[in-house]
Design a protein around this nucleic acid. Sequence first.
DNA 1: TTGTAAGCGTTATCAG
DNA 2: CTGATAACGCTTACAA
Lengths: 343, 343
Amino acid sequence: MTEPDRSDHPERRRRKMQSVTMSDVARAAQVSPSTVSLYLRKPEAVSERVGARVADAIETLGYVPNFVAGGLAAATSRVVSVTVPSLRNAFFSETVTELERLLSGRSLHTLVGHTEYSLEQEERLVRAALSWSPAAVVLTGHTHTDTTRDLLARSGASVVEMWDFGPDPIGRSVGFSHHAVGRCIADHFASQGYGSGAFAGARLTEDARAAQRAQGFLDGMRDRGLSARLVEVAGPASTGAGADLLSRVMEDPVRAVACSNDTVALGVMFEAARRGLRVPQDLAVAGFGDLEFAAQTIPPLTTVRPPAKRIAAAVAEAVLLGPDGDAPRRVDVKFAFCRRGSA
Amino acid sequence: MTEPDRSDHPERRRRKMQSVTMSDVARAAQVSPSTVSLYLRKPEAVSERVGARVADAIETLGYVPNFVAGGLAAATSRVVSVTVPSLRNAFFSETVTELERLLSGRSLHTLVGHTEYSLEQEERLVRAALSWSPAAVVLTGHTHTDTTRDLLARSGASVVEMWDFGPDPIGRSVGFSHHAVGRCIADHFASQGYGSGAFAGARLTEDARAAQRAQGFLDGMRDRGLSARLVEVAGPASTGAGADLLSRVMEDPVRAVACSNDTVALGVMFEAARRGLRVPQDLAVAGFGDLEFAAQTIPPLTTVRPPAKRIAAAVAEAVLLGPDGDAPRRVDVKFAFCRRGSA
DNA sequence: TTGTAAGCGTTATCAG
DNA sequence: CTGATAACGCTTACAA
């Protein structure tokens, strides 16, 4: 029990140090530091009497644990790195929100990064993430640079890919088929007898998932013997982009438009109104995302709802599971078609 | 290229450890670990020859630095904790995005947390944040629990409050007057001679900034001798909430409605259309946020643009500045009124 | 159930 | 400009 007396410690003032450490708590509670550590990590493994004393000491001293030291000693930190293309995108901000909520309940902390759809940027973020000995690395999609895959493999980190599947997943993956989403819209258009259609896409070169939805739509239409073409803009999906896209589509009019996402669909609907086109009589419109406003547009927007929360939940579970274990490495969360008035 | 021989390390198999450490790099580069460390932190302080050798060793060994160990040794980590009420809210997702971008350029990593407008939740997040010996803690608003303030004060962490000012800022603060925003809308309504008005608010009890905008609006209207009332819903600001709010407002019709934010305004406009009310002839509508879709609505939405990016930039600067120094502790970033067709 | 002791991989000090 | 050395605060075998 001979704890070092800090007051006569010659080095005490060398750097700014933590005021109350685990040793201080241990001393106050008359136990060893390892007992405090144990109590903090598995309270049930400590006797009730000792536990109470430790809790008391923590309370009165105002002890704040040092996760940095803990992470170093344990060789793995309580950090989960979450990387998404963009946080402005409602899909991803919802996923991150929910994920952060679930993880923080397990005292895991979320380190966010956004790539703006750049794989090089993703590589940089992964490199930084690995420097934190993270409990897990969560990535969006399955397209990564070779270096990224290499870095991840060599680090042995627990990896989860989300929102999409790849042929060769790195660790676990959680998502759904975006190609099927596109087909689903095409099927609906076909069933309504609209005839010709167009896909109004944004940033398709970079956004692999939007590109898959577009391809699924085109494939679906063609399989049904319907004509369909692709119109796209390079910039981010936005209401303004939607308006532009409809103008482009109307250069060679179609009866139905499937959009990159609901934001684009909103722009398409505004532009249709400006042009005096009635939806759905003159033009059918479908979106993707079932964003908050989708049920409020006039008419309400027909769209596809991706299960952002279910993705977050499954990802959280995958993170908790770790790389090993016999749980399925691939979780298909499905999506739901939301038929409303616009198509 | 002499690979480190770890096999003779008796403890090597105790736990999963880092494969390539700084010592390995040092050995490969024929220098001491301190030199490698120095090179990594200030390359210019190391001779060119040695620097090149170290860089080589890092490259060939594939060394990934360990920030956890670094943070422990330095007593301050490269983590910045950023806490916002909600990430689904476009204002905050934009701020976080921009902040993360700016900080990552300085190799600072963003730990996000969201409070759902709960101060208790904020306290929990701050407690967790402090466990990381963060380079800075960024908070939204100036209302915190006593414990939060206490924790922050005792830790000596660098604190930045954003989006709003308080009478007693903890560290630095960056924001603008939300009360002035409300007044600004009221002034505009008055100048247009609309007469009576209403504020359509969401979650005003928890969202202190929205409440201030409401109060500013009410004060502004009254100062001009105009009648104005407050209509509010408890849930989050959304398009659906906007529609509900307009229904409530029309129980006792007014000529002009100021909204909690643009999302609510969008709902108000949709509901107005459903009711056959022409905007702005029958009803003037103003929002807050200048969200992406604001310029696309029919008619385009009159709103107020908060400088989300400027906030992020000023916060990043404050983070870099640290708590000391003679730079002003309080930065007022202003806002811009966007007159468009709806009011 | 609790304690002892040996690290974890860096940074910071100080001397050369 | 470079290197030896002592922390940093905690976890984890292992022993008691």
